[in-house]
Design a protein around this nucleic acid. Structure first.
Lengths: 141, 141
DNA sequence: AGGAAACTGATAATGATTATCAATAATAGT
DNA sequence: ACTATTATTGATAATCATTATCAGTTTCCT
Protein backbone atom coordinates (compact mmCIF):
# COMPACT_ATOMS: atom_id res chain seq x y z
CA UNK A 1 0.00 0.00 0.00
CA UNK A 2 2.80 2.41 0.82
CA UNK A 3 4.73 1.53 -2.29
CA UNK A 4 1.62 2.31 -4.26
CA UNK A 5 1.42 5.73 -2.67
CA UNK A 6 5.05 6.30 -3.58
CA UNK A 7 4.25 5.43 -7.16
CA UNK A 8 1.39 7.90 -7.17
CA UNK A 9 3.58 10.66 -5.80
CA UNK A 10 6.33 9.92 -8.27
CA UNK A 11 3.87 10.60 -11.07
CA UNK A 12 2.62 13.81 -9.51
CA UNK A 13 -0.65 12.24 -8.53
CA UNK A 14 -2.26 13.24 -5.26
CA UNK A 15 -3.54 10.85 -2.68
CA UNK A 16 -7.18 11.63 -2.17
CA UNK A 17 -9.91 9.96 -0.19
CA UNK A 18 -11.48 8.72 -3.40
CA UNK A 19 -8.27 7.11 -4.62
CA UNK A 20 -7.68 5.49 -1.27
CA UNK A 21 -11.21 4.10 -1.35
CA UNK A 22 -10.75 2.69 -4.83
CA UNK A 23 -7.41 1.16 -3.87
CA UNK A 24 -9.05 -0.42 -0.84
CA UNK A 25 -11.72 -1.91 -3.06
CA UNK A 26 -9.08 -3.39 -5.34
CA UNK A 27 -7.17 -4.82 -2.39
CA UNK A 28 -10.32 -6.23 -0.84
CA UNK A 29 -10.92 -8.01 -4.14
CA UNK A 30 -7.44 -9.22 -4.91
CA UNK A 31 -7.50 -11.85 -7.63
CA UNK A 32 -10.86 -10.67 -8.94
CA UNK A 33 -11.46 -8.84 -12.16
CA UNK A 34 -13.77 -5.92 -11.56
CA UNK A 35 -15.50 -3.73 -14.10
CA UNK A 36 -15.54 0.02 -13.54
CA UNK A 37 -19.18 -0.24 -12.61
CA UNK A 38 -18.48 -2.85 -9.95
CA UNK A 39 -15.70 -0.72 -8.54
CA UNK A 40 -18.06 2.25 -8.44
CA UNK A 41 -20.65 0.42 -6.37
CA UNK A 42 -18.13 -1.07 -4.00
CA UNK A 43 -16.40 2.28 -3.58
CA UNK A 44 -19.72 3.95 -2.78
CA UNK A 45 -20.03 1.68 0.23
CA UNK A 46 -16.99 3.49 1.60
CA UNK A 47 -17.68 6.92 0.10
CA UNK A 48 -21.27 7.38 -1.02
CA UNK A 49 -20.77 10.45 -3.18
CA UNK A 50 -17.95 9.19 -5.32
CA UNK A 51 -18.69 9.78 -8.98
CA UNK A 52 -18.32 7.46 -11.90
CA UNK A 53 -15.94 9.77 -13.77
CA UNK A 54 -13.61 9.65 -10.80
CA UNK A 55 -13.65 5.88 -10.82
CA UNK A 56 -12.76 5.71 -14.51
CA UNK A 57 -10.04 8.33 -14.13
CA UNK A 58 -8.53 6.67 -11.11
CA UNK A 59 -8.56 3.17 -12.56
CA UNK A 60 -6.83 4.42 -15.68
CA UNK A 61 -4.21 6.30 -13.70
CA UNK A 62 -3.54 3.25 -11.55
CA UNK A 63 -3.20 1.14 -14.66
CA UNK A 64 -0.79 3.64 -16.21
CA UNK A 65 1.57 3.34 -13.24
CA UNK A 66 1.21 -0.42 -13.25
CA UNK A 67 -0.68 -0.80 -10.04
CA UNK A 68 -3.58 -2.37 -11.90
CA UNK A 69 -3.95 -4.48 -14.98
CA UNK A 70 -6.59 -3.29 -17.41
CA UNK A 71 -7.91 -6.05 -19.63
CA UNK A 72 -10.70 -6.43 -22.12
CA UNK A 73 -12.39 -9.80 -21.80
CA UNK A 74 -14.30 -9.79 -25.09
CA UNK A 75 -17.52 -8.60 -23.54
CA UNK A 76 -17.12 -5.01 -24.61
CA UNK A 77 -15.78 -3.53 -21.42
CA UNK A 78 -12.59 -3.37 -19.45
CA UNK A 79 -11.90 -5.11 -16.19
CA UNK A 80 -9.31 -4.15 -13.64
CA UNK A 81 -7.24 -6.28 -11.34
CA UNK A 82 -4.52 -5.54 -8.78
CA UNK A 83 -1.06 -6.36 -10.09
CA UNK A 84 0.61 -9.17 -8.25
CA UNK A 85 4.30 -8.36 -7.92
CA UNK A 86 5.41 -11.95 -7.56
CA UNK A 87 3.49 -13.38 -10.46
CA UNK A 88 5.35 -13.43 -13.74
CA UNK A 89 3.22 -14.72 -16.55
CA UNK A 90 -0.40 -14.96 -15.62
CA UNK A 91 -3.06 -16.08 -18.02
CA UNK A 92 -6.81 -16.20 -17.79
CA UNK A 93 -9.35 -18.94 -18.22
CA UNK A 94 -12.81 -17.54 -18.87
CA UNK A 95 -15.89 -19.70 -18.57
CA UNK A 96 -18.48 -18.73 -21.19
CA UNK A 97 -21.25 -20.20 -19.08
CA UNK A 98 -20.78 -18.62 -15.63
CA UNK A 99 -18.36 -15.89 -16.65
CA UNK A 100 -15.88 -16.79 -13.95
CA UNK A 101 -12.28 -15.88 -14.57
CA UNK A 102 -9.54 -18.12 -13.24
CA UNK A 103 -5.86 -17.31 -13.29
CA UNK A 104 -3.01 -19.61 -14.06
CA UNK A 105 0.69 -19.20 -13.99
CA UNK A 106 3.00 -20.64 -16.57
CA UNK A 107 6.22 -19.57 -18.23
CA UNK A 108 5.61 -21.49 -21.40
CA UNK A 109 5.52 -18.37 -23.52
CA UNK A 110 9.15 -17.51 -22.96
CA UNK A 111 10.35 -19.59 -25.85
CA UNK A 112 7.74 -18.10 -28.17
CA UNK A 113 8.77 -14.61 -27.11
CA UNK A 114 12.37 -15.36 -27.93
CA UNK A 115 11.29 -16.48 -31.36
CA UNK A 116 9.41 -13.23 -31.92
CA UNK A 117 12.25 -11.09 -30.63
CA UNK A 118 14.68 -12.86 -32.93
CA UNK A 119 12.58 -11.49 -35.80
CA UNK A 120 13.27 -7.94 -34.70
CA UNK A 121 10.26 -7.21 -32.50
CA UNK A 122 10.48 -5.60 -29.10
CA UNK A 123 7.89 -7.24 -26.89
CA UNK A 124 6.14 -5.08 -24.33
CA UNK A 125 3.40 -7.32 -23.15
CA UNK A 126 1.29 -10.30 -23.98
CA UNK A 127 -2.18 -11.52 -23.29
CA UNK A 128 -3.28 -15.13 -23.27
CA UNK A 129 -6.86 -16.15 -22.67
CA UNK A 130 -8.56 -19.49 -22.77
CA UNK A 131 -12.29 -19.78 -23.19
CA UNK A 132 -13.26 -22.99 -21.44
CA UNK A 133 -16.21 -24.40 -19.54
CA UNK A 134 -15.16 -24.72 -15.93
CA UNK A 135 -15.51 -28.02 -14.06
CA UNK A 136 -18.58 -26.74 -12.16
CA UNK A 137 -20.48 -25.74 -15.29
CA UNK A 138 -19.64 -28.96 -17.07
CA UNK A 139 -21.18 -30.96 -14.26
CA UNK A 140 -24.41 -29.01 -14.32
CA UNK A 141 -25.50 -30.34 -17.67
CA UNK B 1 -16.55 -18.89 -51.84
CA UNK B 2 -18.99 -21.65 -52.73
CA UNK B 3 -18.40 -23.45 -49.47
CA UNK B 4 -19.20 -20.23 -47.70
CA UNK B 5 -22.47 -19.96 -49.56
CA UNK B 6 -23.24 -23.52 -48.53
CA UNK B 7 -22.61 -22.59 -44.93
CA UNK B 8 -24.95 -19.65 -45.21
CA UNK B 9 -27.69 -21.80 -46.67
CA UNK B 10 -27.22 -24.45 -44.05
CA UNK B 11 -27.99 -21.86 -41.40
CA UNK B 12 -31.02 -20.56 -43.22
CA UNK B 13 -29.28 -17.39 -44.22
CA UNK B 14 -29.96 -15.88 -47.61
CA UNK B 15 -27.37 -14.79 -50.09
CA UNK B 16 -28.00 -11.17 -50.81
CA UNK B 17 -26.07 -8.57 -52.75
CA UNK B 18 -25.01 -6.93 -49.52
CA UNK B 19 -23.64 -10.14 -48.08
CA UNK B 20 -21.79 -10.95 -51.28
CA UNK B 21 -20.25 -7.45 -51.23
CA UNK B 22 -19.11 -7.85 -47.64
CA UNK B 23 -17.68 -11.27 -48.36
CA UNK B 24 -15.81 -9.83 -51.33
CA UNK B 25 -14.37 -7.13 -49.12
CA UNK B 26 -13.17 -9.72 -46.64
CA UNK B 27 -11.63 -11.81 -49.39
CA UNK B 28 -9.95 -8.79 -50.97
CA UNK B 29 -8.40 -8.13 -47.59
CA UNK B 30 -7.41 -11.61 -46.59
CA UNK B 31 -4.97 -11.55 -43.69
CA UNK B 32 -6.08 -8.08 -42.61
CA UNK B 33 -8.12 -7.28 -39.56
CA UNK B 34 -10.88 -4.86 -40.44
CA UNK B 35 -13.18 -2.95 -38.16
CA UNK B 36 -16.88 -2.79 -38.97
CA UNK B 37 -16.41 0.81 -40.03
CA UNK B 38 -13.65 -0.12 -42.45
CA UNK B 39 -15.78 -2.88 -43.91
CA UNK B 40 -18.64 -0.42 -44.31
CA UNK B 41 -16.57 2.03 -46.35
CA UNK B 42 -15.02 -0.66 -48.51
CA UNK B 43 -18.39 -2.27 -49.09
CA UNK B 44 -19.86 1.07 -50.12
CA UNK B 45 -17.39 1.16 -52.98
CA UNK B 46 -19.20 -1.86 -54.35
CA UNK B 47 -22.67 -1.00 -53.13
CA UNK B 48 -23.10 2.67 -52.22
CA UNK B 49 -26.32 2.37 -50.25
CA UNK B 50 -25.33 -0.40 -47.90
CA UNK B 51 -26.16 0.53 -44.34
CA UNK B 52 -24.07 0.17 -41.25
CA UNK B 53 -26.58 -2.03 -39.45
CA UNK B 54 -26.37 -4.49 -42.31
CA UNK B 55 -22.61 -4.58 -42.02
CA UNK B 56 -22.75 -5.31 -38.30
CA UNK B 57 -25.44 -7.92 -38.75
CA UNK B 58 -23.63 -9.64 -41.58
CA UNK B 59 -20.24 -9.67 -39.88
CA UNK B 60 -21.76 -11.21 -36.79
CA UNK B 61 -23.61 -13.83 -38.79
CA UNK B 62 -20.45 -14.72 -40.69
CA UNK B 63 -18.58 -15.00 -37.42
CA UNK B 64 -21.28 -17.23 -35.96
CA UNK B 65 -20.88 -19.73 -38.79
CA UNK B 66 -17.10 -19.52 -38.52
CA UNK B 67 -16.43 -17.81 -41.79
CA UNK B 68 -14.87 -14.88 -39.94
CA UNK B 69 -12.97 -14.47 -36.71
CA UNK B 70 -14.20 -11.67 -34.49
CA UNK B 71 -11.55 -10.35 -32.16
CA UNK B 72 -11.23 -7.45 -29.77
CA UNK B 73 -7.76 -5.92 -29.90
CA UNK B 74 -7.91 -3.87 -26.71
CA UNK B 75 -8.86 -0.68 -28.48
CA UNK B 76 -12.54 -0.90 -27.65
CA UNK B 77 -13.88 -2.32 -30.87
CA UNK B 78 -14.02 -5.58 -32.71
CA UNK B 79 -12.08 -6.48 -35.81
CA UNK B 80 -12.99 -9.17 -38.32
CA UNK B 81 -10.79 -11.42 -40.38
CA UNK B 82 -11.45 -14.20 -42.85
CA UNK B 83 -10.88 -17.62 -41.33
CA UNK B 84 -8.02 -19.51 -42.86
CA UNK B 85 -8.98 -23.18 -43.05
CA UNK B 86 -5.45 -24.48 -43.04
CA UNK B 87 -4.15 -22.49 -40.12
CA UNK B 88 -4.43 -24.16 -36.75
CA UNK B 89 -3.24 -21.95 -33.97
CA UNK B 90 -2.76 -18.41 -35.11
CA UNK B 91 -1.67 -15.66 -32.79
CA UNK B 92 -1.38 -11.93 -33.22
CA UNK B 93 1.45 -9.49 -32.77
CA UNK B 94 0.17 -5.93 -32.41
CA UNK B 95 2.48 -2.97 -32.74
CA UNK B 96 1.45 -0.20 -30.34
CA UNK B 97 3.15 2.38 -32.52
CA UNK B 98 1.80 1.78 -36.02
CA UNK B 99 -1.11 -0.46 -35.06
CA UNK B 100 -0.16 -3.13 -37.54
CA UNK B 101 -1.24 -6.65 -36.78
CA UNK B 102 0.93 -9.56 -37.80
CA UNK B 103 -0.02 -13.18 -37.58
CA UNK B 104 2.07 -16.09 -36.49
CA UNK B 105 1.51 -19.76 -36.36
CA UNK B 106 2.69 -21.97 -33.55
CA UNK B 107 1.38 -25.02 -31.78
CA UNK B 108 3.10 -24.29 -28.52
CA UNK B 109 -0.15 -23.96 -26.63
CA UNK B 110 -1.12 -27.59 -27.05
CA UNK B 111 0.73 -28.67 -23.95
CA UNK B 112 -0.80 -25.88 -21.91
CA UNK B 113 -4.24 -26.81 -23.11
CA UNK B 114 -3.70 -30.38 -22.03
CA UNK B 115 -2.73 -29.14 -18.61
CA UNK B 116 -5.91 -27.09 -18.35
CA UNK B 117 -8.10 -29.92 -19.59
CA UNK B 118 -6.57 -32.26 -17.04
CA UNK B 119 -8.00 -29.91 -14.39
CA UNK B 120 -11.51 -30.54 -15.67
CA UNK B 121 -12.00 -27.66 -18.09
CA UNK B 122 -13.42 -28.04 -21.55
CA UNK B 123 -11.54 -25.66 -23.81
CA UNK B 124 -13.46 -24.00 -26.61
CA UNK B 125 -11.03 -21.42 -27.81
CA UNK B 126 -8.00 -19.39 -26.94
CA UNK B 127 -6.60 -16.03 -27.76
CA UNK B 128 -2.93 -15.08 -27.62
CA UNK B 129 -1.72 -11.60 -28.37
CA UNK B 130 1.68 -10.02 -28.15
CA UNK B 131 2.10 -6.30 -27.94
CA UNK B 132 5.44 -5.57 -29.52
CA UNK B 133 7.10 -2.79 -31.49
CA UNK B 134 7.60 -4.06 -35.00
CA UNK B 135 11.03 -3.96 -36.67
CA UNK B 136 10.01 -0.96 -38.82
CA UNK B 137 8.89 1.17 -35.89
CA UNK B 138 11.97 0.32 -33.86
CA UNK B 139 14.19 1.60 -36.65
CA UNK B 140 12.36 4.91 -36.91
CA UNK B 141 13.56 6.16 -33.54
C1' DA C 1 -45.73 -16.05 -60.41
C1' DG C 2 -46.87 -16.05 -55.39
C1' DG C 3 -46.18 -16.00 -50.60
C1' DA C 4 -43.70 -16.91 -46.28
C1' DA C 5 -39.77 -15.63 -44.19
C1' DA C 6 -35.45 -13.41 -44.16
C1' DC C 7 -33.28 -9.10 -45.07
C1' DT C 8 -32.56 -4.13 -45.59
C1' DG C 9 -31.65 0.91 -44.50
C1' DA C 10 -32.79 4.67 -41.62
C1' DT C 11 -33.12 5.90 -37.31
C1' DA C 12 -33.48 5.71 -32.44
C1' DA C 13 -31.70 3.56 -28.40
C1' DT C 14 -28.20 1.58 -25.59
C1' DG C 15 -24.04 0.99 -22.84
C1' DA C 16 -19.39 1.99 -21.85
C1' DT C 17 -16.26 5.48 -21.66
C1' DT C 18 -14.44 10.35 -22.11
C1' DA C 19 -14.59 15.45 -22.12
C1' DT C 20 -16.05 19.75 -19.93
C1' DC C 21 -16.14 22.87 -16.30
C1' DA C 22 -16.94 25.31 -12.10
C1' DA C 23 -16.19 24.19 -7.37
C1' DT C 24 -13.13 21.82 -4.05
C1' DA C 25 -9.15 19.77 -1.86
C1' DA C 26 -4.19 18.40 -1.54
C1' DT C 27 0.47 19.78 -1.48
C1' DA C 28 4.72 22.82 -1.39
C1' DG C 29 6.71 26.83 0.15
C1' DT C 30 6.61 30.33 3.34
C1' DA D 1 -0.61 27.15 10.26
C1' DC D 2 -1.48 30.11 5.87
C1' DT D 3 -1.65 30.60 1.21
C1' DA D 4 -1.00 30.00 -3.57
C1' DT D 5 -0.69 26.68 -6.97
C1' DT D 6 -2.33 23.01 -9.21
C1' DA D 7 -4.48 18.54 -9.27
C1' DT D 8 -8.86 16.56 -8.45
C1' DT D 9 -13.75 16.13 -8.02
C1' DG D 10 -18.85 15.31 -9.23
C1' DA D 11 -22.45 16.33 -12.36
C1' DT D 12 -23.48 16.49 -16.76
C1' DA D 13 -23.15 16.37 -21.59
C1' DA D 14 -20.82 14.31 -25.38
C1' DT D 15 -18.82 10.53 -27.88
C1' DC D 16 -18.11 6.09 -29.88
C1' DA D 17 -19.20 1.45 -31.07
C1' DT D 18 -22.82 -1.47 -31.26
C1' DT D 19 -27.78 -3.11 -31.10
C1' DA D 20 -32.86 -2.78 -31.46
C1' DT D 21 -36.91 -1.31 -34.02
C1' DC D 22 -39.78 -1.30 -37.87
C1' DA D 23 -41.90 -0.54 -42.27
C1' DG D 24 -40.74 -1.61 -46.80
C1' DT D 25 -38.05 -4.86 -49.91
C1' DT D 26 -35.91 -8.98 -51.61
C1' DT D 27 -34.88 -13.87 -51.67
C1' DC D 28 -36.04 -18.36 -52.67
C1' DC D 29 -38.97 -22.42 -52.53
C1' DT D 30 -42.98 -24.41 -54.94
Amino acid sequence: MNSIKEKLKDSNYRITGQRAAILEVMMDNQGKHLSAEEVLYKAREKMPNIGMATVYRTLDKLASIEVLYKTMFDEGRYRYELCDEGMHQHHHIICPSCGNITEMEDDLLNSLEQKIESKGYEIIDHDLKFYAYCPECRNKE
